[in-house]
Every structure is written in C-alpha cells, then in structure tokens.
Simulated assay, not measured.
Amino acid sequence: MLEILIAATLKAGKEIMSVHAAGPHVTYKNDCSPVTEADQRAEDVILEALAHHFPDIPVIAEEAAANGIVPNAGDEFFLVDPLDGTKEFISGKQDFTVNIALVRNGAPVMGVVYAPALKVLWTGDGDIACKVQISDEFEQTDVRKVRCRAKPTIPIAVISRSHCTPKTEAFVAERGLIDSISIGSSLKFCLLAEGAADVYPRFSRTMMWDTAAGDAVLRAAGGITLDMSGAPLRYELDDSDSDGLANPDFIAWGAAP
C-alpha cells in the first residue's frame, strides 16, 4: 500500500509543479481560504489512484469536502490534502506539501508527505519513518530511516508561518523555547520526525487532512501528537457537528513531554 501512496503523491506533485511553473490562478472558497487549479488537479490524480487500488476504503479529501462531498467512513479511511500550504504556494515559497494518510480506529497508521519544490518526501508506516530524496524526474533516489531525537536541554519549537497566535507565542515564551523555526504546511511534523526540532504547538484551526499524514510520519518516528487533555490526537468523524472534520488544539512532540 505504501508504494501506491508514494506513487500517487509523486504524480500529484508533478501536476502541482506544472502549475507552479506557469503561475497559479487563485480563487477563494466559501471560508475565504485560497485555492488554485493545482489543488484540484493534484486531488483528481490522488482520488483516481485510491479508487483504482482501494475501492472499498472511503476517501475524505479537502477539495471534495469543500464541495460538500464527504463519504460515510467507518473505522478505516483515507485523508487527503492535495496541496497543504496553498498560501506558501501562491506566494512562491517552497514549503507546501501533498499529504495522504490512512486512518484506522482513530489513529493515523500510514502517511506520506511530499514537498515537491524541496524534492523531499517523508513516509510513516507502523514504527518505521523514512526521508526520501526525489529526483527532477520525480523518482526516488535515496531513502533513509529517521527518528525523533531525545529531548534536549533547550528544545527547538516549530511554529506555523501563516497561523501563529498569541497563545502560541505565550507557550513558546513560558517554556523558554529560545530557538524556533517558522515554516508552512505539514513540514512541521516532518522536522520533528527527523530530529530537526522538538515541539510543535498548534492553537489555531486545522482540519484532519492538514495533519494526519504528518502525524503518521511523526508517530512512526517515535513522536506523538497530544490534544489539550494529554491524550493522543484522534481522527474520528463527528456526524453530529458540521465542523466535525476540524481538529482541536494540539501539541506535537518529538519526545515525551
């Protein structure tokens, strides 16, 4: 299954970089968030691959959900964010990603995060996380396992470039986190997974498809994402709530807090 997800993300990344080279046309959704043709083209590629290989597993994808298409999902389903970090993509930055995650019984058990502009891909499957270099021809050239590092004396925080809040700044200040990295998209989870940072506090809105793939990579690397009660973040659909695909606030850790 993992290789199929990797192939789908690489194909989606190729579509995204084609739009990136030509220059995206930007429109806005009902929630005022930006969207480009790259988002839809990447999602179409991924949905086609998943439908072909795994027709019995429901898929919840960002652009389809924005159009009111959310299938009934049981204990196992895919979460897809075809272009995470659309603001970064539009502004010409490189920290945007393609995300596919498999959720089982509320936990992200497999994930692929691909940063096409950076030519790097991360995977998480069980307790194995890998960082993969990608060639100009969108092929895998080097694979190495990654693990979270042990908690250092002074941890490094990674924070959202576009969604930093006063609560996030207070968290960083209260814990004396002198060093921090500001970056977009699900790359924040990947930095924790490969030991480049230690904690990612998120106290602003995210959706399940924003986080599941990166969270799967982090957990496979030995880290954990906790909600504000200290329990592992769950990916469970709440049909009673129109906002049932949103995450609560959370803190992702590369080592036990």
Rank of each mutant, 00 (worst) to 15 (best):
I4W: 03
A7I: 00
A8M: 04
T9D: 13
T9H: 11
L10C: 04
K11P: 00
E15H: 02
S18K: 11
A21N: 06
P24Q: 13
T27M: 05
K29Y: 09
N30G: 15
V35N: 08
T36I: 12
E37A: 09
E37W: 01
D39I: 13
D44H: 11
I46L: 06
A49T: 01
H52Q: 05
H52T: 04
F54H: 04
D56F: 00
I57M: 05
I57T: 04
I60S: 01
E63W: 01
E63D: 06
A64N: 09
A66S: 15
N67A: 13
G68L: 12
I69W: 07
G74H: 13
D75G: 00
E76V: 12
F78S: 03
D81P: 00
P82S: 10
L83C: 12
L83G: 10
D84G: 03
D84V: 03
D84K: 09
D95K: 08
L102N: 14
L102Y: 13
G106P: 05
G106E: 13
P108Q: 04
M110C: 12
V112W: 04
A117V: 09
L121R: 14
T123L: 02
T123K: 05
G124C: 05
G124T: 10
G124W: 05
D125H: 09
G126E: 13
D127W: 11
D127T: 13
I134P: 01
E137F: 01
E139I: 02
E139V: 01
T141F: 05
T141Q: 14
A150I: 10
T153W: 02
P155M: 07
I156R: 13
I156Q: 11
I156N: 10
A157C: 02
S162F: 00
S162K: 04
T165R: 15
P166I: 06
E169I: 06
E174D: 14
S186K: 14
L187C: 11
L187P: 01
K188W: 08
K188G: 13
F189P: 00
C190E: 13
L191C: 04
A193N: 13
E194Q: 02
Y200E: 12
Y200A: 09
Y200L: 07
F203M: 11
F203Y: 12
S204F: 06
M207H: 15
M207A: 15
W209Y: 10
A213S: 10
A216C: 07
A216S: 07
V217M: 03
R234P: 00
Y235F: 12
S240V: 06
A246K: 15
N247H: 14
N247G: 09
G254M: 14
